[in-house]
Amino acid sequence: METNYINFSKVGIIGCGFVGSSSAFSLMQSGMFTEMVLIDADKARAEGEALDISHGLPFAKPMKIYAGDYSDLKDASLIIITAGANQKPGETRLDLVKKNIAIFKSIIPEIKKIDYKGILLIVANPVDILTTVAIKLSGFPANRVFGSGTVLDTARLKYNLGQHLDVDSRSVHAFIIGEHGDSEIAAWSCANVSGIKLNKFCEMRGFFKHEEAMKRIADEVKNSAYEIIKRKRATYYGIAMAVRRICEAIVRNEKSILPISSLMKGQYGISGIALSMPAIVGRNGVETHVPFEINEQEAADLQKSAKTLQEVLAQNEL
């Protein structure tokens, strides 16, 4: 990344719906940035969100928050794209494809016009498809365009396992990989609690029906968004906190390992589609995927997940 063009204290958010505004609020509270640009097709909405969040600044750290346009994003270190149609009750993330690809066809060319040198973080759903689309439409290096992927799903898995085992979820080490959606995979073969294999830790806590518990917890994670949408019509707090975590890894150059959605280049026989796999994330975006050992069944499920996404993308050629 050409750092002479980049202001690492500045962030842009495109889309001021539930997810965009919640992310803006979360990032304001983080103190990571001193400038935030909000963009929405409805400029009055962006202005309203900027004003509302700004009124809380006396309780936080100094920051400039305003509604802007694409020219204001030129020197931002990060552009977070949350713009897109909302997932309705009974609708899958893949059902949103046509509507949201059309929206991206209007957004990405505007970003290209300003000769943007920073990182594009895709949050809109279906995130894996839209990350792939953003890479193709922008022509930017793939390390600079990636999605929030299964960072939130992984947090849900850790939370559920923590609840199940009555242990701090931060001590749980496990990943959801593949699609952020119905074909996602809980990589149980690598899961552990502070280095202790998961099954052994479960037995230590009095749980012995491993297969039954694994299926129940994986299903709970996969269906969490549907359950939340059914009750309150949208999910936004969890993903806003996931966005904040990814931004921390980038801005602070943490080299954190996160399951973001990035372009696969032959790993596990998968190419040409963005999928979530653990990767090192820092100031230059995606540094590298990490050598993540999964069992044969998980690898087969990952390839199946990729095939599902590739088929959907093929039906929606750019």
Rank of each mutant, 00 (worst) to 15 (best):
T235W: 00
N100H: 02
G206L: 14
L152Y: 11
K10C: 07
G238F: 02
E47N: 11
K43L: 09
S54G: 03
N284E: 14
M36A: 09
S77G: 15
E35Q: 12
Q87I: 01
S261N: 09
I273R: 03
S194Q: 12
K64N: 14
A41I: 13
Y237F: 02
K215C: 08
I185K: 14
I250P: 04
T132K: 04
G181A: 02
L120H: 06
R45D: 05
I119G: 08
G206A: 12
E212C: 06
I108M: 05
V11L: 15
S183W: 03
V221E: 04
A41R: 13
D52V: 06
I135C: 13
S148I: 01
R144P: 03
V221W: 02
G272F: 09
E298F: 10
Y268P: 04
N284Q: 13
K307S: 03
I101E: 01
E212H: 10
A142M: 07
A24I: 07
S224R: 03
L121Y: 09
A85H: 02
R144L: 15
G15H: 02
V133E: 11
A242E: 03
K74Y: 06
S21D: 05
G15T: 03
G178W: 00
E35C: 08
G12C: 13
I114S: 02
H210M: 15
H173M: 06
L318G: 04
E211M: 10
I79K: 10
L137A: 07
Q297W: 04
R93S: 03
A279G: 12
D72T: 02
V286I: 15
E211I: 09
V221N: 05
A191S: 15
V221I: 12
K215Y: 10
V251I: 14
E47Y: 00
M277K: 10
